[in-house]
Design a protein around this nucleic acid. Structure first.
Lengths: 345, 345
DNA sequence: GTTAGCACTCTATAACGAAGAGTGCTAACA
DNA sequence: TGTTAGCACTCTTCGTTATAGAGTGCTAAC
């Protein structure tokens, strides 16, 4: 375990590096933070901290910067929980009031808001359709050969798809089928439905008619098709403000990654289950994706009606203001849940 | 008017600059393109072309590069219409076959495809809801205090919104109202409906009841809310491959702009009406937006059932391969229209 | 009208040197 | 034993200078 003075010095170094992005020398620490000891003493401590793996040196005559382990210790053991300021609270409230009317706007604007407050890239995983509970499905007329299929969940999400009518089948026939299914499936999660229950129903109804089979196919395909999750992005250009991304090659790698929506989904879902405690931080090499191993991610999930359905995250260089970002995330994700209550049946 | 030799030289310079991104000197032209004259002669011609405004010089001892006027002349008078290659044709066909199931996937994948083929940023303006013809609207139950409102157009687009029921009103009441409206509004464009006709209906029905008034408000608001158009982006990172964007400041300006969806909508709509002829090119300073005055845009629109509903575009530095990009755009927008026919009632 | 020759301009690149920041080590001190 | 001052050493950064190279415009000859 680190002794008290080492902790203070590590804390000072991380704080300083976060705000200046410059390696820090012993002199600087002695001057800025009044520890009552000389630079030489601090030098000795810093040499120890480097040996222990908390600090790194770019070259012999540069100051030290925190290592991944250093940041981890900082986040876990040194960071005092900070409160979000009143100014920020009102910013959040006004933001939503002014901009978010429709449900999808809420997510888009959450992404914008987060990137603006944290000056980093933000990601918002919209509610995952597959996690919601089925409420009912309905077929509606479109023209002679096609119909519209609606799937409604109890979180208020509605998905629609134009489908081709099976040969010789009318909308009314499909709707009759739908009514039977609605009774049976109501309240189940869409994932459950997709995986097993559809098959059961099909067997039950098999006796009825050949058309049922066709209709099942349609519904099944629709369920699968609509499942793709959406990720809203904010502040991708914030990257370019960070000195660690002066290198164009790095920028490209990251931007390329941000264009891959399925990959982002996966990224956000990986630690989605761990967020009971609130906010989860993944630092540097802890990230499983190569492209962001010199980035950190601060993540929180949100629930609708008790179910975890999506998450929000901030992505930036490991040199990010963890304290501030974590408190913002904590507040925003709670506020978001609050807002989404209105959409829950 | 330029004489023949000047045209040949201008053509050569633009071609060369497009592929190398380096200013071109008289020597290079004489060597690469066999004109049967010496560099000195070409130098004289180049001096003339600069005086006429077709070429520019960065500093006294550099070669020349095309000016905006030079590119314009190249596109209008020098460029022979080129055919897209067989390889590219099959790429396009396979692309859609493999990836585009749902309607919105078609647009997303068009953007991806275009950016990949042209190695530039692509923009796809999804069908504008307001331009489509109204088919019907329908209210469906959700819970005691809310209902789902659906608006269906004859292009197969369905928009949905969860709305609060006016005090004391039931879904059935709203639906009765909707039935009356459906009869009256069917076939009109949503823009027409929003601007004037809603008012008429309201007056007609005013006698009926106070609830009608509330219901109208809901519908109106929904119509307005759903009108926001969507722009799909592809290949934003292609920027970073272009030598003209080695400057981070430029990259940021452009990326910032690409995050502003309404702005992109506007940009794409500006010249949407001029595209009867097929493909429209906007070069450098011809762009009204500051941020892209050193970029060019190649744009085409697509129709559903004869109506112009959206457009596709490629955005890149003025030094882009106009010939190739224009032919790709020409092919892709036709192919897109072809595919969308399936979605038209 | 075309071309060779030549002086001139401007950029890009490498080489060099000085300044500055920071370290590690040693020896002295409380 | 922990702390501190002093000092030699390392490495980066930045500005200066020199040089090579590309390209031009002009003049005079063909």
């Amino acid at each position: 375990m680190l002794d008290k003075r080492k902790k203070i010095i590590l804390h000072a170094i991380v704080d300083d590096y976060i705000s200046t992005a410059e390696p820090i020398g012993s002199r600087t620490i002695a001057r800025k933070y009044d520890l009552g000891v000389s630079p030489a003493t601090i030098r000795n401590e810093m040499a120890d901290l480097e040996l222990l793996g908390y600090l790194e040196q770019l070259h012999t005559s540069s100051g030290r910067i925190p290592s991944g382990k250093g940041y981890r210790f900082y986040v876990d053991s040194l960071l005092a929980p900070t409160q979000i300021s009143d100014k920020e609270v009102t910013l959040v409230k006004n933001w939503y009031q002014a901009k978010a009317r429709r449900l999808d706007e809420v997510f888009q604007e959450t992404a914008r808001l987060l990137s603006r407050m944290t000056r980093n890239i933000s990601l918002v995983l919209a509610p995952q359709f597959g996690q919601c509970n089925f409420k009912y499905l309905q077929f509606m007329p479109f023209d002679e050969t096609r119909a519209i299929l609606l799937i409604v969940t109890d979180t208020g999400m509605v998905e629609n798809k134009v489908i081709d009518l099976p040969q010789g089948m009318r909308v009314e026939d499909l709707q009759r089928l739908a009514n039977m299914m609605n009774q049976r499936l109501s309240g189940l999660s869409l994932e459950q439905i997709e995986s097993s229950i559809l098959r059961e129903i099909k067997e039950d109804l098999l006796a009825e008619a050949k058309v049922v089979d066709d209709a099942m196919k349609v519904i099944r395909q629709a369920l699968r098709g609509e499942k793709q999750d959406r990720v809203y992005l904010g502040g991708t250009t914030q990257l370019l403000n960070q000195p660690e991304f002066r290198n164009l090659e790095k920028v490209r790698t990251l931007l390329d990654m941000l264009e891959e929506e399925p990959l982002l989904c996966d990224l956000l879902q990986q630690r989605q289950q761990e967020t009971d405690s609130g906010v989860v931080v993944t630092i540097g090499e802890e990230n499983s994706y190569r492209g962001i191993q010199d980035c950190s991610m601060v993540q929180a999930t949100y629930r609708i009606g008790g179910q975890v359905v999506g998450s929000v995250a901030v992505l930036g260089p490991t040199r990010m203001d963890y304290g501030k970002i974590m408190s913002i995330m904590d507040y925003v994700h709670t506020h978001l849940e609050e807002m989404l209550k209105d959409y829950k049946a």
